[in-house]
Amino acid sequence: MSCNGFEKFSLDEWTEAEFAKHIETCESCRIAMEQDRKLLDLARSRKTNITAPFLWPRIETDLQQQRTAILKSDNYHRWFFRIAAILVLAIGISMLWFKGQNKQQSPLLTESTLKKVEQLEKDYENAINELEALVTPQLSQLNQELMLLYRDRLETIDAQIEQCKEALAMNPANAHIRSYLLAALRDKKATLREIIALTTT
């Protein structure tokens, strides 16, 4: 076929009207069109029913199996996620509980530690009291102003010590109050040393 008119028509480069006008004069394109019509008619005649009586039962059985497998898998996943969620929740709650326990326990002293601390405090306090007994008579050797200042300071420290002791009587294991008591005792010791230093020079 030398003319490409039918190709142009088939590829929509020509309209139906253009092609109709063309085949009035082009024999090869007219024959091509007739052959094409024959071919398409013949192709349409192939549109017959194909019998496949066992196809749907096969497909249906397969689909039922697939659906059961999916449901099983969904159930498995659902249980898996439920158990995982419960585990995560349990671990989270126990971690929070332990954290809370630790927080509560951290400022508290254990029974044995408390006994040791109380004994050491007692010894320390006794030592300071002995020092105080030595220093108190020497206070009068200081001038009036210094004497009043140190007496006032010692009274303030004693009041702090008393306050700490009162608090410890209610909550003996509280390490924070014990540390305040220790600081007050150290302060008293330092003040008494200062007085000794002033009276000996």
């Binding site: 192939r46 549109k47 017959t48 194909i50 496949a52 196809l55 497909i59 397969d62 689909l63 697939q66």
Partner: peptide, 28 residues
């Protein structure tokens, strides 16, 4: 759709059994 599907599959595969398999696989 099974008739047009079978016809198309038959014309591509040239075998009725293969065409049925293709339709079966398609539905799965």
């Amino acid at each position: 759709y099974h008739q047009p599907m079978l016809r198309v599959a038959r014309d591509i595969l040239h075998n009725k059994q293969d065409a049925e398999d293709a339709v079966h696989i398609t539905f799965v």
